[in-house]
Design a protein around this nucleic acid. Structure first.
Length: 425
RNA sequence: GACCCCAUCGUCUAGCCUGGUUAGGACUCUAGCUUUUCAAGCUAGCAGCGCGGGUUCAAAUCCCGCUGGGGUCGCCA
């Protein structure tokens, strides 16, 4: 029976490396029809915070990693104490003040069986005696880790590569307790863009940061699984369900991977493009609500048109409002820079003519807007090309964007006409 | 420094186990097409087996060394 665990410490938010460790544990459990345990390692009373714990659980749910069991180490202090005292009684550990410390036995060859790296060998002579219980009566990390993994019958310990050197110490603890050592899989680390350790300096680290930036869980999870693993067949975009079917821990890479925000953005955009408009509308509205955007000036039909028009260029959900903010307000703000670049007096005159012409139109849609635009501009002796940009700036406050005439249509006759009329400098 | 891990385009990777590929895909980048701009899309292109020794008819693939990168060395987890 396969049983794995993800064991975060609530001394900070769930970070991207932790999320990947959780993902591989979760995929392994689901692929093997095993059990996935979530264990909160809150032994450090000072640094552990309830808000971090809640955030970790929230992020786990958001990512779609459901767990079968949930444990808190803070509720298991009696168990750790009991086993530490047993080792004391057996003479395998000694006291130093109030602390209980395990004696290391020298000259032992310690072999770790790692699913990803095969055998790793250590010499116990290189190890220092290990603190089991600290002077303040709380258990030390390696000790509770071993006690819990053994008692919870964890079959495979899947964790980051940074734990490789903890493993021989923990094996000495297993041996002292007379317990069976689990199998291991040490995942390669995720590095920042500059090749150094992932930190706030070289990008977002918390899963919640990615959510706040407008990444969706599906693409973040998809991207994370690509770091150190491949679904095969040159496939990259995949679902968790499909990935689980193909997942093999032995196929996980050994080398550290650099996190590429650029590729994540690309993947996120792929998800938007293939998403049903209704679903995208729903999550975009949620996003706008979170950002406290007033949506009263845009009705459902307009919103849908905006989504269809802009979804191709969204790397994140947040991009949507950055592109379409002009539609949610009664008047656009146009920077002085764009005004002087596109809205000189003679341009504004034509824009006013265009406004008048558009005002007289009965059926206001993209194709009539386009023909009126061309007629007006060309009859004044100008080319369409010269006026596309000024009009776009007048209507949206931006110099780039999708089809101008569709924007007019979404904005509606009144707003289009009034914005063209009020651009005078 | 000691111990340990690792090494295919700039980046993520397939191939390595079970030697024989024009070393494949993706992101980025470049060019062209498309286009009212940008983005997207389509097409084409640039770019890689860290180095040195073996083993072998044949090495990205197996072995050794070197170099380079990373991790750990807390009564933090």
């Amino acid at each position: 029976m396969i049983k794995v665990r993800f064991a975060p410490s609530p001394t900070g938010f769930l970070h991207i490396g932790g999320a990947r460790t959780a993902l591989f544990n979760w995929m392994y459990a689901r692929a093997q029809k095993g059990t996935f345990v979530l264990r909160i390692e809150d032994t450090d009373q000072q640094r552990s915070k309830k808000e971090f714990e809640e955030e970790i659980l929230r992020s786990m749910k958001w990512l779609g990693f459901d767990w079968d069991e949930l444990h808190y180490q803070s509720q298991r202090f009696d168990i750790y104490r009991e086993h530490a005292h047993r080792l004391l009684d057996e003479g395998k550990a000694y006291k130093e003040g109030e602390a209980i410390i395990l004696k290391m036995i020298p000259d032992q060859e310690i072999k770790i069986y790692d699913l990803i790296r095969d055998e790793i060998t250590f010499d116990s002579s290189d190890l220092k005696d290990q603190v089991l219980m600290k002077s303040d009566g709380s258990p030390a990390y390696s000790f509770c880790c071993v006690v819990d993994d053994a008692l919870m019958e964890i079959s495979h310990v899947i964790r980051g590569e940074d734990h490789i050197s903890n493993t021989p110490k923990q094996i000495m603890i297993y041996n002292a307790l007379g317990w069976k050592v689990p199998k291991y899989a040490h995942l390669p680390l995720i590095m920042g863009e500059d090749g150094s350790r992932l930190s706030k300096r070289n990008g977002a680290v918390a899963v919640s940061d990615y959510k706040n930036q407008g990444f969706i869980a599906e693409s973040l999870v998809n991207y994370l699984m690509l770091l150190g693993w491949s679904p095969g067949n040159n496939q990259e975009k995949t679902t968790l369900e499909a990935a689980v079917k193909k997942f093999s821990i032995k196929k996980v890479n050994k080398a550290a991977a650099i996190f590429s925000m650029e590729k994540l953005r690309w993947l996120n955009n792929q998800y938007f493009k293939e998403m049903k408009t209704d679903q995208l509308i729903e999550i975009l509205k949620e996003n706008l609500q979170e950002r406290k955007v007033d949506m009263n000036l845009v009705d459902d039909a307009q919103f849908r048109e905006l989504v269809d028009l802009y979804k191709g260029r969204l790397a994140t959900l947040n991009d949507f409002y950055d592109w379409t903010d002009f539609a949610f307000v009664s008047d656009v703000k146009i920077s002085d820079e764009l005004k002087s670049k596109y809205l000189a007096a003679e341009k504004c005159e034509i824009l006013k003519k265009l406004a008048d012409a558009l005002a007289g139109v009965g059926q206001f849609d993209a194709s009539t807007a386009e023909s009126v635009f061309k007629q007006t501009v060309e009859s004044s002796g100008h080319t369409s090309k010269d006026y596309i940009h000024p009009v776009r700036v007048a209507l949206t406050g931006k110099e780039v964007g999708p089809s101008l005439f569709h924007i007019m249509s979404i904005l509606g006759k009144d707003k289009t006409v009034s914005r063209l009329n009020h651009v005078s400098i």
